[in-house]
Design a protein around this nucleic acid. Structure first.
Length: 770
DNA sequence: CGAGGGACTTAGCAGGGGCAAT
DNA sequence: ATTGCCCCTGCTAAGTCCCTCG
């Protein structure tokens, strides 16, 4: 217990958390920060050791030899898969005599030989799943287009019983431990639980198990696509008569257009944005464009505009909305659901797939991040005339809103989007695409992790190569090698070139400039230290001091010779060049794969290192979060400390103190009871002692849980775990870990994540290795 | 090549819903 | 039942990478 409450140093990484504070956050709120965590070992170094073993057989292979070996592997793999398929089909036939072996087992080409094969003990489960899938695919074949849902429900009742028994056998423990003791009657509890399970099952059955199907040929994303088109932002609601903008102290009535734009500004009055010079200027320029001639004549100075009445009005409206009666809120909720039902889904290859963003972005003032030169500009209202619809030829083409036309309707099945438009601030294209739980996104995600896994086998060779290249005669090669070293070791982003003045001044690896690094031949007892300080994506500050290899250090000195502030550190390098090189080292390799690879491999290692089999479930979860945190630190995923952080931390602390008191009290009571029992030795008193004992135990457990929570939260103050969880960590690592330690998956992944990673949850067993 | 555009992933923030404590 | 708080979800900006064209 005690070790849990100790501040545990971050087991890896050279990142000093305390120093990595978002610049803007610093300004906004320079509160006390947690003490910096001790920097320990070098992650890349650890990995090197780990993968060293594999090196032997790969060493000295030419690319040609290697690819030959690869194809051989593939062939082997295919053989294996064929066998698997056969087995699978066999087992199907055994169960369903009318089966026409409709299941096609997915053959994942990039799958590695170390992909976890199904364990024997799990056969029962596997088969159950297959049964389900078989039935599903059967119904899939039957149903076509419109009647999809009905067909589905028809096949359901039969299935349900079967699965229920299966499920019941499989997950009773988990389900029960999930439920928290409520003050409900036993029956109510059971009923609610049954409903929950039923719902879960239903969802499970509706799920398209695309990962068991064969992939389409290259480039084809779908064969049938039908949808309702996007949902447009509601029209502007004019201000109430008595609410005015004041100019130079005098009330003004604006034209509808100008008023709408003014309202965007007024609504943000309590936001820092409206105090920024650039934001105000950009807004004013664009606002004036919407004004009538007369308005333009009058309103010439933003400083003379008083929006407070409008601001108060909107604030009041918000308040009103919040305080609406239950029924009204329910009604709104229902309406939203109806909307989602109508616009939120599409039919893709005869499966109902959820759309990620079916609502068109409403007009607003552009909120660029960091020092964005375009912040405050008006993001215009999007009309159907701006929208390109993409769907299949034989689908029902979505209707534009009455009186409107689409810009274009096209039938391009090599792309995944359903609709697109060009946004006016940056001139970029925006899309309506599917939700993360869709086949299209899932398949890509899976592929991403498979490429990252493939890198595992090439990493050593690649590292060796770039180390050799540190000494290359060619400047280009040297720069490329050092950049790659940073990308690999520090998980930096590639760093594309950006047009100056179009967005905030942020950089990645290839676009680093001289002023972003400082070289220290010696610092704090370490040699060859590089200090990084630059703004990365989203203007999040990257600050890090890293000891590097001597050769790297020398090279950096060389690269910086005769350069001044503003000059590129890697002047002979850019991302296409780097990626082209990477492509030659391994098919599908690009700079970002290193981030995925290093994130996932770090999680796996950290989990291995931190998980103590003896510990309780909450302690294990803390270990998981710590492993996750190590990755988040590596990838520099930050967040603003929650506004109520200090407050809620203090609350938790006082609760812990209260718990401690309670334990003392309980212990005292126990002691007294014991004493009494010793003296009198009655049955009854012994029982009392027992119950007191249990009470102490219970309270201690509660305390422990709280303390774990407290450390977890403290360590998490300004680190965002979600980004890496969602985008960088192979979900199969987490699923396998949960299975191995019988930790409920829902403790790690919430509903959204479980949905997104359904493929991984379905296919992963405890022995998965990234 | 190198600019420019297109498609798709990755990112943090705001606000609301839902749940636990009172 | 009410309140307070936390997490989830939706939103959309900001990246990466690829393709095309001159």
């Amino acid at each position: 217990m005690t070790q849990l409450s100790l501040p545990v140093e971050d087991p890896d990484s050279f990142h000093n958390v305390s120093e990595k504070v978002k610049d803007k956050k610093k300004k906004r709120k320079s509160e006390s920060k947690p003490e910096g965590k001790a920097k320990k070992k070098d992650k890349a170094g650890v990995e090197n050791g780990e993968t060293q073993k594999k090196k032997g057989k790969e060493k000295d292979m030419t690319i040609a030899e290697e690819s030959e070996r690869k194809t051989e592997k593939k062939r082997e793999k295919k053989k294996k898969d064929k066998k698997k398929t056969k087995e699978k089909n066999l087992s199907e036939i055994k169960q369903e005599d009318d089966q026409t072996s409709s299941i096609i087992v997915k053959v994942e080409p990039d799958e590695d030989e170390d992909f976890a094969p199904a364990k024997k003990q799990n056969k029962g489960k596997k088969r159950a799943r297959q049964e389900e899938a078989t039935e599903l695919s059967k119904s899939k074949k039957v149903k076509l287009e419109e009647d999809a849902n009905e067909t589905e429900t028809e096949t359901k009742p039969k299935k349900k019983k079967k699965i229920k028994t299966e499920e019941g056998k499989q997950k009773p423990k988990k389900e029960e431990s999930d439920r928290k003791p409520k003050k409900k009657t036993q029956e109510e509890k059971e009923a609610a639980a049954a409903l929950k399970i039923k719902k879960k099952e239903e969802e499970e059955q509706m799920r398209w198990r695309w990962w068991e199907e064969e992939k389409y040929e290259d480039g084809i994303k779908w064969k049938f696509l039908e949808h309702k088109g996007p949902f447009f932002a509601p029209p502007y609601e004019p201000l109430q008569e008595n609410v005015k903008l004041y100019y130079d102290g005098k009330p003004l009535s604006l034209s509808l257009q100008a008023e709408e734009v003014a309202s965007f500004f007024a609504k943000m009055l309590d936001h820092e944005y409206t105090t920024k010079e650039i934001f105000r200027n950009n807004f004013f320029v664009d606002w004036r464009k919407e004004m009538t001639l007369e308005e333009k004549m009058v309103i010439t100075d933003l400083d003379k505009c008083d929006f407070t009445e409008m601001f108060t009005y909107y604030k009041g409206k918000m308040e009103e909305k919040k305080n609406k009666s239950k029924e009204d809120k329910l009604k709104i909720k229902e309406e939203n659901e109806k909307l989602l039902e109508e616009y939120g889904y599409c039919a893709m290859d005869h499966h109902r797939e959820k759309i990620g963003n079916f609502k068109i972005e409403p007009p607003a003032l552009f909120r660029g991040r960091g020092d964005h030169p375009k912040q405050g500009m008006l993001k215009k209202r999007i009309l159907p005339e701006d929208i390109i619809i993409n769907c299949s030829k034989d689908s029902k083409i979505p209707e534009p809103p009455p009186g409107h036309k689409w810009k274009e309707v096209r039938h391009d099945n090599t792309v995944t989007w359903l609709a697109s438009w060009t946004e006016n601030v940056q001139g970029s294209v925006k899309y309506i695409m599917l939700n993360a739980n869709s086949k299209l996104k899932g398949e890509k995600d899976w592929e991403k992790y498979e490429i990252a896994r493939k890198l595992k086998h090439h990493a050593e060779k690649i590292r060796k190569t770039y180390r050799e290249n540190f000494k290359s005669k060619e400047m280009k090669v040297r720069q490329r090698a050092v950049a790659l070293y940073f990308i690999d070791k520090l998980a930096l982003r590639a760093g594309n070139e950006k047009e100056e003045g179009e967005s905030a001044d942020t950089v990645g690896c290839c676009s680093l400039r001289v002023e972003h690094i400082k070289l220290y031949p010696e610092l704090d007892g370490e040699k060859h230290v590089v200090e990084f300080d630059f703004l990365g994506k989203d203007s999040i500050r990257y600050y890090n001091k890293v000891p590097v290899e001597k050769q790297v250090f020398k090279n950096l000195q060389l690269f910086m010779e005769n350069k001044e502030e503003g000059d590129d550190l890697f002047d002979r390098l850019n991302t296409p060049l780097l990626n082209k090189h990477l492509q030659s080292l391994m098919e599908g390799l690009t700079a970002k794969v290193f981030r995925t690879y290093n994130a996932s491999i770090t999680l796996q290692q950290q989990l291995q290192e931190l998980t103590d089999p003896e510990e309780s479930i909450p302690a294990k979860i803390l270990s998981y979060n710590r492993a996750n945190r190590a990755v988040a630190i590596l990838c520099n995923h930050q967040r603003a400390p929650p506004k109520t952080f200090d407050q809620s931390m203090a609350n938790l602390k006082s609760k812990i103190d209260a718990k401690k008191e309670q334990i003392l009290l309980a212990k005292k009571e126990l002691k007294e009871a014991k004493k009494e029992a010793k003296e009198k030795d009655s049955e009854k008193l012994n029982k009392v002692v027992e119950s007191k004992k249990r009470a102490v135990q219970r309270t201690e457990e509660q305390l422990m849980r709280m303390e774990v929570q407290a450390t977890d939260r403290e360590e998490n103050k300004q680190i965002a775990l979600s980004t890496s969880k969602l985008n960088y960590l192979d979900p199969r690592i987490s699923v396998a870990w949960c299975k191995k330690w019988t930790v409920g998956l829902e403790k790690i992944y919430n509903k959204t994540y479980r949905d997104k990673f359904a493929w991984a949850i379905d296919m992963t067993e405890t022995d998965f290795i990234f």
